[in-house]
Write a protein that binds this DNA or RNA. Structure first.
Lengths: 242, 242
DNA sequence: ACATATCTCGCTATTTATGGGGAGAGCAAA
DNA sequence: TTTGCTCTCCCCATAAATAGCGAGATATGT
C-alpha cells in the first residue's frame, strides 16, 4: 500500500470522475484510483433487492457472479451494517458473529477480496443506497492508518462516483418520483405504524371508503402492487418517516 | 467574502465538529465556519415531514420563526429542489418560477438571508434528509467562483455536521431489536417488494403455512401489529434492503 | 451434549383487504 | 375559463390475511 502518489493525482482522478461521459470512463477511473491508493480492490455499486443494479470495480468476474449467485447481498454484513449507519465504516467493526457471515468472509478472502475493508455508504434521492468500498490484504495497524489518513478523500470520491452513476444510468434519472399528497402521506404513515384501515380512517376522521381512495392513489403513484408494497416504497423513498 | 484563512483553519474546524460533544459545540463550530468562509450565513438543519427536528446556524431568530410560522418548508425551492438531487446545488439553478417561491425569496432577502446561496443535501439512515446551506449577498460571478472553489470542502463539512447531529440527537438512538432469521428476512423482503403470501411462498419454495410462521415470528420479534407494520419496521431498522 | 433457534408442515373460522366502478365540491394553476 | 389535482363519499363480490392451536427435523451455539 505505497501511496506514493500525491494529492495532485487524487484531484486529477476526481476531475476525471466528474467529467466522465460514459460508464466505461468510470471503470477506468476506479482502476486508476486503486493504483493511486495502492489497495487490492475498489468497488462502487448500488444496492437494491429488486433487480436493477449497477456496479463497477476491480473484483474478479468470478467473485461478482458468485456473490450474486449465492445472494450474498442478504448475508453481507457490509451491506446491512452500512445501511444502518451514516458514516464510513471499517469492516472490522461490523458484526461478523453469525455463521453465514463468517462463511461469507472466508469465501470472500478465498476469492482475493482481502482481509481488510472500508466502506462509504451513500444515499441519493428516491431511497437510493450505494456503497463505495476499498479492500486490501494487510495487518490491522497499517489499514487503520491508511483509512484514517484518507477517509475524507474517500467520502469525496464516493460522492463523485455516485453523482456520475446517477447521471449516466438512464433508469434512475428519469424516474421523476411523483410526491404524495398530504392525505396520502397521512394514510401511508399510519398504515406503516401498524394501524388497520378502520383505525386509520377514524384517526383521520374520514370514512374508510375515502381512506381506500388515498391508499389506491398512493399505490398508483408509487407503482406498487399492494398496500405492503406501497408502504415499503413510500418508506424507502423517504416520502414517509416512522 | 475574503477567505483569507488557509486550509489549516478549515481542518481545525472540521476536527472541532468531529469532536463536538454537545449541540452547543456545533453551533459554535458553524459560527467559526461562517467567519472562515466569510459568508453571511451558514445553516444546517434536518427536514422532516413530521415537524422539525433539529437545526443550527446563523440566521436571525426572526427569520427562523417566520420561516416556521409561514410553513415555508412547503414552498422553499431549496428544500424541494435538493430533495430530488444528489449533488450540491446553487440556489440560482433551482426553480423559482412559481409565485409563492418568488414571494418567499423576496421575504428571505428582506430578512438578510442574502441573494446568493448554495446547499448540500445530505441523507442518512431511515429516510433522514438534511440540508447544509450557505448564503451571501454578492454578484453571480463572485459567488460562482466561491462555490466552485469550495464545493468539495462543503461536502465534507456537511457530512461532518450530519454525522454529529445524528450522534448527538437522542431520538435517533437505535433501539436494539432482535435480528431476523435468514428466512424471515427473505419473507419480509419479498413482501416489501409487493409479492402476495402465495407468491412469496412459491418464490421460497415452501408452503404458505410455513411462510405464515415466518411472518408471524418476524412480527413478534419486531413488536409489530400486522404485516404492514412488520415490513415497515424491518425496513426502517435496516433489517431488509429494497 | 444439551438447550436454543430455525425450518418445515398442518388445521379452521373470522376478519380484513382488494378489485373495479362512479360522483361531486373545492382549490389553484395555466 | 378550463384543466387538473385533491378531498370526500358510496356500492359489491372476491381474494387475502389473521388468530389460535399443534408437531417434528435440523441446525447452531455454549
Amino acid at each position: 500500500m505505497g501511496s506514493v502518489a500525491g494529492t495532485t493525482s487524487l484531484n486529477s482522478i476526481l476531475e476525471c470522475v466528474e467529467h466522465a461521459d460514459t460508464l466505461t470512463d468510470l471503470q477506468q477511473a476506479i482502476e486508476r484510483l486503486r493504483d493511486h491508493f495502492g489497495v487490492d480492490h475498489i468497488v462502487y455499486h448500488w444496492v437494491s433487492a429488486d433487480g436493477e443494479q449497477y456496479g463497477c470495480g476491480t473484483y474478479s468476474i468470478e467473485w461478482v457472479s458468485r456473490y450474486l449467485e449465492k445472494t450474498y447481498l442478504r448475508v453481507d454484513p457490509v451491506v446491512l451494517g452500512c445501511y444502518q449507519r451514516f458514516h464510513p465504516v471499517d469492516w472490522k467493526r461490523l458484526d461478523w458473529s453469525s455463521k453465514p457471515a463468517r462463511d461469507f468472509l472466508e469465501d470472500a478472502i478465498a476469492h482475493g477480496v482481502g482481509n481488510q475493508g472500508f466502506s462509504v455508504p451513500i444515499r441519493g434521492p428516491n431511497g437510493q443506497y450505494a456503497l463505495f468500498s476499498l479492500s486490501h490484504s494487510s495487518d490491522d495497524a497499517t489499514w487503520d492508518e491508511f483509512t484514517s489518513t484518507h477517509h475524507r478523500d474517500l467520502i469525496l470520491v464516493a460522492h463523485a462516483f455516485n453523482r456520475k452513476a446517477l447521471e449516466l444510468e438512464p433508469g434512475r434519472a428519469q424516474e421523476v418520483a411523483q410526491a404524495l399528497s398530504p392525505r396520502e402521506v397521512d394514510a401511508m404513515t399510519l398504515l406503516a405504524l401498524g394501524y388497520s384501515r378502520a383505525q386509520v380512517a377514524s384517526s383521520l376522521s374520514i370514512s374508510e371508503h375515502t381512506l381506500r381512495v388515498y391508499i389506491e392513489s398512493a399505490r398508483h403513484k408509487l407503482g406498487a402492487l399492494n398496500t405492503v408494497h406501497a408502504v415499503a416504497r413510500a418508506l424507502s423513498r423517504g416520502f414517509i418517516v416512522i
